[in-house]
Design a protein around this nucleic acid. Structure first.
Lengths: 241, 241
DNA sequence: GTTTTAAGCGTTTAAAATACGTTTTTTATT
DNA sequence: AATAAAAAACGTATTTTAAACGCTTAAAAC
């Protein structure tokens, strides 16, 4: 009855496991999106009792034959209809008392997605809505901590991996990209220095189109060149923004 | 029967949980130590069947009423006899097939400790030994991945948090500190620039003692001033090495 | 006393970050 | 039709930080 992973335990005493038929494992998703110049979070208003009306992250139990990250992808698909979403494991929340009444460990994941991409009706039919970080209501359980920690990880990772592009449409302008980084780091950046910096990374391709929605003059559209980025990585380059 | 954390699931369909009485949660510890100029890892040779003789990380099941990080601390104490060890959650390993035969999710933690501090007899009585990263034998299950990922996280974190000091004795010399960073990053550093950099951080206190073990001339001992570090942090300073 | 070795202090050069000026393109206004 | 307004795009100067390298010092070994 000793599973071979737990066989790594240096004690072979596993009899406390007799009562372990009540340990649940779940996953909760911190879903980030960028729209209207603001970083937003997709949260969910429960419609069923108990706790109907309380905002929380979207989650689910992990099935017995399912990878934990697969469970997170399943949740994302159910709520957004999308399969190819950038996702990272954030942190596992394992306090014995974090969920009153039951022992449940949650493996949080954060996801980055383009808000326009997904089926707005589907999310609304689930009672899910986008909130800016400023407007965010109080969340259930330790979900507040989950958001804080995920944001922290997102900020750190965005500095050395080009994950920002996951939040923008395929084609975007430099000023749009700047607004994204400003909303992630919650501080203003100098437009001239920002432009210089991102163009020096050599992973953006300038297109012949302009986007006129943001200004009179319009700004050139760019796209992220992931092949070029891979090449650069392989030649020992390190991205940093 | 719906736990309220999983109540964050937007689906109330929880009947797949019927078979969940066989989902185990464990923790495995990646224990780093620094000795003799080298970064080392404490690993464990199983003495009992099955898998006797296979090297692996040290781990244990999480008890039903125990915080996950508490479980990791318990493991650390059992194997080293120490309670106050620096520890961070690393990552959760949740592939359904990671442990042949049983469904077991493992929440890995990495720990940093001073090798001389701990009870060598205790570790040896558990069949645990220190190995350098170069000498590391093949490990059981996905423990190889756990080591790689933990090392990656350690490297990233060591750049912006003064965690290196957890691996050194209370009093240490600048050249010792340099060797530590060299062994973490696996590359040589210029001693003159390194000295300049760490002293500019203003968190080391020079003592009136010298350590003569490393050279004829001897090098001044320093200690890390954690109060000063906290002060600096609060005044918006950010440590970076 | 001379050699050897690492510690400790310093300077020079290169690169990166920051601050800020100017021109360009287009729409709106008079 | 001329002009003002606003953001985009490009450029330069300054400051800060990182990298490269020289020299002196202290103490043991010969």
């Amino acid at each position: 009855m000793t599973p071979s992973s737990a066989s790594t335990a240096h004690t072979s005493n596993t009899d406390f496991y007799a009562s372990h038929d009540k340990l649940y494992v779940a996953t909760d998703c911190i879903i980030f999106g960028f729209d209207d110049g603001d970083l937003k979070l997709l949260i969910f208003k429960r419609r069923v009792e108990p706790d109907s009306g309380i905002w929380s992250l979207i989650g689910s139990f992990v099935k017995i034959d399912e990878d934990v990250d697969e469970a997170a992808r399943r949740v994302l698909k159910e709520i957004t209809g999308l399969e190819e979403i950038y996702m990272e494991q954030s942190k596992t929340y394992g306090k014995a008392e974090r969920d009153p009444g039951h022992r449940c460990i949650s493996v949080a994941h954060y996801a980055l997605m383009r808000i326009n991409d997904h089926d707005r009706e589907l999310t609304q039919s689930h009672g899910a809505f986008w909130y800016t970080l400023q407007e965010l209501p109080r969340l259930a359980l330790d979900h507040q901590d989950m958001v804080r920690d995920a944001l922290d990880k997102l900020r750190r990772r965005a500095r050395y991996q080009p994950i920002g592009f996951e939040l923008l449409p395929e084609k975007f302008t430099i000023p749009q990209l700047q607004k994204l980084y400003e909303s992630i780091y919650q501080r203003e950046l100098d437009p001239r220095n920002f432009r210089k910096k991102v163009l020096s990374l050599k992973v953006l391709v300038k297109l012949d189109e302009k986007d006129k929605s943001g200004s009179k003059r319009g700004a050139y559209l760019y796209r992220f060149d992931s092949e070029k980025y891979q090449e650069l990585l392989e030649s020992g380059y390190n991205f940093e923004i």
